[in-house]
Amino acid sequence: MPARRTPFGAAGGGPRKGAALRRAWAGPLAAAAIIAAVPAQAAAAPDPAHGKQIYDRCLACHAVAHDRVGPRHCGLKGRQAGSMPGFEYSDAMRATGFTWNRQTLDRFLTDPLGVVPGTTMTYDGIKDARERRDLVAYLLSLPPCGGR
């Protein structure tokens, strides 16, 4: 079961548990555990269904099938940034030269204003790598535009 997320990071069970964990990490068994855990985490497949839940955070400004404060997301995979006809993008977004794919979406969603200064997507970003990975998987799974 994944660690519960809080505004301060993953919930770890408080200072006492944290101290115990630190002691454990100093030992050789902990090193073995790290070696075993890292490949498993890296190999975890993106979960678009979880990404759809994360997408709820975008719903004040975005929709899949139509433009709102932000542009529609249908057919996002492989689209040139700032290219949805009829949507008024910032100059900054049009100038990125991005093509939306896993790498560019991951980079942008980490820190939208840091990556594209001047974008009107004034949002702090999705800081949790797993949440971002799954959101990107969902966005890239969306069908082409053209019908509800």
Partner: peptide, 17 residues
Amino acid sequence: AGLEKGAVSAYLGAVPL
């Protein structure tokens, strides 16, 4: 409700900026 939930997230993402 979906719009309001999105609005909460949007403001949460704007406050630190």
